[in-house]
Simulated assay, not measured.
Amino acid sequence: MKVALVHDYLTQRGGAERVFELLCKYFDRADIYTSVYHASKTVDLGDRQINTTFLQQVPGTRKRFRLFAPLFYPAFRFLDLQDYDLIISSTSSFAKAVRKKPGAMHICFCHNITRFLWDTRTYLEEYGGLKKYSKALEPVLQSLRQADLIYSQEPDLYIANSSTVAKRIEKVYSRKSLVINYPIDTKKFIFSDCKEDFYLISSRMISYKRLDIAIEAFNWLGLPLVIIGDGPERKRLEAKALDNIKFLGFVNDEWRTHLMAKAKAVVITALEDYGLVPIESNASGTPVVAYGAGGVLDTQVHKETGILFKPQSPEALQTALFMAEQQQWDYHQIRAHAVNNFSEAVFFKQVRQTIEEFCGKSVIDSIELNLDLESDRALVEVN
Results as ranks from 00 to 15, higher is better:
residue 211 L to M: 15
residue 149 L to F: 09
residue 219 N to Y: 14
residue 218 F to Q: 06
residue 190 I to A: 11
residue 303 K to H: 13
residue 170 E to F: 14
residue 247 F to V: 04
residue 308 L to Q: 10
residue 160 A to H: 03
residue 127 Y to V: 09
residue 278 P to G: 12
residue 260 M to Q: 10
residue 113 I to S: 01
residue 57 Q to M: 05
residue 17 E to H: 02
residue 275 G to V: 12
residue 31 D to L: 09
residue 14 G to F: 00
residue 34 T to N: 06
residue 183 P to F: 03
residue 223 L to K: 14
residue 239 A to Q: 09
residue 219 N to I: 15
residue 294 G to Q: 07
residue 148 D to C: 02
residue 109 F to Y: 10
residue 313 S to R: 11
residue 30 A to H: 05
residue 84 Y to D: 08
residue 312 Q to W: 13
residue 92 S to R: 01
residue 28 D to E: 13
residue 381 E to C: 14
residue 156 D to S: 11
residue 368 E to N: 15
residue 29 R to F: 10
residue 210 R to C: 14
residue 156 D to P: 06
residue 374 E to W: 15
residue 240 K to I: 03
residue 25 K to A: 10
residue 240 K to H: 04
residue 86 L to M: 09
residue 248 L to P: 05
residue 132 K to D: 02
residue 319 T to Y: 13
residue 229 G to I: 15
residue 284 S to A: 14
residue 59 P to G: 00
residue 366 S to K: 11
residue 268 I to W: 03
residue 53 T to R: 07
residue 266 V to P: 01
residue 304 E to T: 08
residue 285 G to F: 10
residue 189 F to A: 01
residue 179 V to W: 06
residue 372 D to R: 15
residue 326 Q to S: 11
residue 103 G to H: 10
residue 95 A to N: 07
residue 3 V to P: 02
residue 316 A to C: 12
residue 87 I to W: 03
residue 280 E to H: 06
residue 135 K to A: 09
residue 118 W to G: 03
residue 83 D to I: 08
residue 209 K to V: 13
residue 101 K to Q: 11
residue 9 Y to P: 00
residue 308 L to T: 14
residue 181 N to W: 06
residue 174 S to N: 15
residue 239 A to M: 08
residue 375 S to H: 15
residue 264 K to A: 10
residue 198 F to W: 03
residue 141 L to H: 05
residue 348 F to Y: 13
residue 106 H to M: 09
residue 288 V to T: 13
residue 339 V to K: 02
residue 100 K to F: 15
residue 180 I to G: 04
residue 334 I to S: 04
residue 323 M to H: 12
residue 257 T to W: 01
residue 202 S to Y: 04
residue 43 V to F: 11
residue 49 Q to G: 08
residue 176 K to S: 06
residue 240 K to A: 08
residue 253 D to W: 03
residue 253 D to I: 02
residue 301 V to A: 08
residue 263 A to S: 05
residue 65 F to P: 00
residue 282 N to Q: 09
residue 174 S to L: 14
residue 21 E to V: 11
residue 36 V to G: 14
residue 75 A to D: 00
residue 26 Y to H: 06
residue 73 Y to H: 00
residue 221 L to C: 13
residue 74 P to L: 00
residue 375 S to I: 12
residue 267 V to N: 02
residue 314 P to C: 14
residue 5 L to W: 01
residue 341 N to L: 01
residue 113 I to A: 03
residue 178 L to E: 12
residue 78 F to E: 04
residue 297 L to P: 04
